[in-house]
């Protein structure tokens, strides 16, 4: 198996010690006009952890992702990444700092090849500009080579390297989901946010995905996971945060969450089939 801890220099050495806090969401409130999408939400993610973010539809999970990745700016509260606030940073800056994400409804670059999609990800840590490219300066060569090798490595890791030269739009649904994860990993992140990666998967594929998420973590990434499938969430996460109507109603290990009466009332009760 390829060694994926071998990252590019910019993203190489983790700043926080293993087990330290990677992301801290501190009393974040987010309002759209009169609607409160997130209400005083706080949680932390430790290095190397897989944290599940669950809740019924409309609970504010994706909104929470969007706040973390800079799409929305919280009305109040703070979000710290490796100890520094990322509020107000441009989206691409946040990505370059080390937070990557996938999308609930797949958003690849459809008319670019799978490889090119991942290369765009690796470019997040690159600085080649117009002149380097035009005169094929050493920086361009170096970054192209590194990026290319890394991109192929990631495609192989996700098991889609044979489709490297196919258009993203032509990939099967499952491969598109895998490609999205590869592209996110390519940006050289410390924290990967997966937004319902198992949506539309059959049970066998879900099991495969569970293994994959563990493998991603074992490579040294921290994972924040939104998922509907309770079996998957319970099976793969270290800790779970439960949202309902924009508020955090519970937090703890999967076993604790399973037995938490508030969660059962709010969520499991509604989605019993998923939970069993």
């Amino acid at each position: 198996m390829p060694d994926l801890t071998k990252q590019e220099p910019a993203a190489a050495a983790p700043v926080a010690p293993r087990g330290g806090t990677v992301l801290e969401v501190r009393n974040v409130t987010l309002k759209f006009g009169g609607l409160t999408a997130l209400d005083d939400v706080s949680f932390e993610i430790a290095e190397g952890e897989i944290l599940g973010l669950i809740g019924p539809n409309g609970a504010g999970k994706t909104t929470c992702f969007n706040a973390v990745t800079g799409v929305y700016r919280p009305t109040s509260g703070d979000i710290l990444f490796e100890g520094a606030s990322i509020i107000g940073l441009k989206k691409h800056k946040i990505t370059q700092k080390g937070i990557a994400r996938t999308f609930q409804n797949i958003r690849l670059f459809p008319t670019m090849t799978a490889l090119e999609n991942v290369l765009v990800g690796t470019d997040a840590q690159h600085t080649t500009g117009m002149l380097s490219a035009l005169f094929r300066l050493p920086r361009h060569r170096r970054e192209e080579e590194q990026g290319h090798a890394r991109a192929m490595e990631l495609l192989r890791f996700m098991g889609i390297h044979r489709k490297a030269d196919e258009l993203a739009a032509n990939l099967s649904y499952g491969d598109q989901r895998r490609l999205e994860i590869a592209r996110a990993m390519a940006t050289g992140p410390k924290l990967i946010c997966l937004d319902e990666p198992a949506a539309g998967f059959n049970p066998a594929e879900k099991v495969e995905l569970m293994n994959l998420i563990r493998k991603v973590r074992d490579q040294g990434y921290t994972v924040l996971l939104i998922e509907h499938d309770m079996k998957l969430v319970m099976g793969v996460t270290d800790r779970i945060v439960v949202l309902e109507f924009g508020r955090k109603i519970a937090e703890g290990a999967p076993a604790e969450i399973r037995d938490n009466p508030a969660v059962i009332a709010a969520y499991l009760g509604v989605d019993e089939e998923d939970a069993s």
């Binding site: 990745t69 799409v71 441009k90 989206k91 691409h92 990505t95 370059q96 990557a100 994400r101 999308f103 958003r107 690849l108 670059f109 459809p110 008319t111 670019m112 090119e116 290369l119 765009v120 990800g121 470019d123 997040a124 840590q125 690159h126 080649t128 500009g129 117009m130 490219a133 361009h140 970054e143 192209e144 592209r183 996110a184 940006t187």
Partner: peptide, 20 residues
């Protein structure tokens, strides 16, 4: 990188921004 960034922006500006 420049050409890829152009194409990614054309395909999906928000996604491109979120990919750095």
């Amino acid at each position: 990188r420049v050409g890829r960034a152009w194409e990614a922006t054309r395909e999906d500006e928000d996604a491109a921004e979120l990919m750095g």
